[in-house]
């Protein structure tokens, strides 16, 4: 119902959308629910790209499956919508084939951390030069609100109807301990800071990671009595604690508890290809042709 209405309304709007250069307007309206944080994350990402004034031709977005997995489909960039959990290894192949390209994985928590968890930690370990953006909505939203490895303990989901009794992952800790060179977390309320975080992550060489806290407004928030979109914003406002440089071991998210946000890691480290090139140069000397130096 509401989708149709939006189409009609949008059809009459003649003014250019401010993000038109970066969005596939022929695919709007998008599938996300009103008050969903994914749209905010996309807007912040697009704004970051604008601010950086980088060549959009040189940016690719890879997504997996799920609500956030649809991001690739709305960005007017070379964009790849892959399979569940596999956006990261697809991006690894792409980033190695096109070393000068900014390859961004934009996906959800279930996709990146559950089914794709192994790919996530190994790609961070290798410090492959990609940016991973994870919209953490605390559940599997597209399939109807099942428990995820990020669901806070005690929270209710459609497959933990009596409450979740297992420990969730702390994503900044996972990324940092696996080797990421940049780790930040913001909520969907912190649009300006989130935009800056994206811009910083995009400028990093190596595996950069930004977690966007955006509990699913349709399935998680309601089920767990966080109210609607506006109430969610108020929740973020009242409960976020900005702590730059916080020890990632101390940023666990408890049920309806404070959320520590900020930039936790920002270090320099040779990338996967840097290490490979250096290693081979040591072994083969001048005979080794540095990989990725010339692009076409």
């Amino acid at each position: 119902m509401s989708t149709v209405e939006i189409v009609e309304v949008r059809g009459k709007v003649e003014k250019e959308h401010p993000m038109e250069k970066l969005l596939r307007m022929d695919r709007i309206p998008h599938i996300w629910c009103p008050t969903c944080g994914i749209g905010t994350a996309v807007k912040a990402f697009a704004t970051a790209l604008e601010q950086l004034e980088i060549d959009y031709n040189n940016v690719a977005v890879v997504s997996g499956i799920g609500c956030t997995g649809r991001v690739a489909g709305y960005m007017k960039l070379d964009s790849f919508h892959t399979t569940h959990g596999r956006a990261v290894p697809f991006a690894v192949g792409l980033a190695i084939a096109k070393p000068k390209m900014k390859v961004v994985v934009f996906s959800g928590d279930g996709d990146l951390i559950s089914i794709g968890g192994n790919h996530f930690i190994h790609t961070a370990r290798r410090n492959v030069d990609i940016t991973v953006i994870c919209v953490n909505n605390f559940i599997y939203a597209m399939t109807g609100g099942q428990v995820a490895p990020t669901t806070p303990i005690l929270a209710n989901s459609s497959t933990t109807p009596y409450g979740t009794f297992e420990y969730p992952f702390n994503l900044p800790l996972l990324a940092a301990s696996s080797g990421a060179v940049y780790v930040a977390r913001w909520t969907a309320l912190h649009v300006r800071r989130l935009t800056n975080a994206f811009a910083e992550a995009l400028q990093k060489r190596g595996f950069s990671f930004v977690e966007v806290i955006a509990p699913c407004s349709t399935l998680y928030a309601r089920r767990n009595k966080l109210g609607d979109g506006l109430n969610l914003m108020k929740f973020y406002h009242d409960n976020s604690i900005i702590k730059h440089g916080a020890d990632p071991r101390e940023v666990d998210i408890g049920f309806q508890e404070k959320i520590v946000v900020g930039k936790f890691v920002d270090i320099e480290k040779p990338t996967y290809l840097d290490c490979l090139n250096d290693g081979y140069k040591r072994v083969f000397g001048d005979a080794y042709k540095v990989y990725g130096e010339e692009d076409e």
Binding site: F80, P89, G93, A95, I96, A97
Partner: peptide
């Protein structure tokens, strides 16, 4: 799974 996806990504990268 990663191997198969990486070769797909690389192929789309023109390699």
């Amino acid at each position: 799974m990663a191997s198969m996806n990486a070769i797909l990504g690389a192929s789309w990268g023109g390699v």
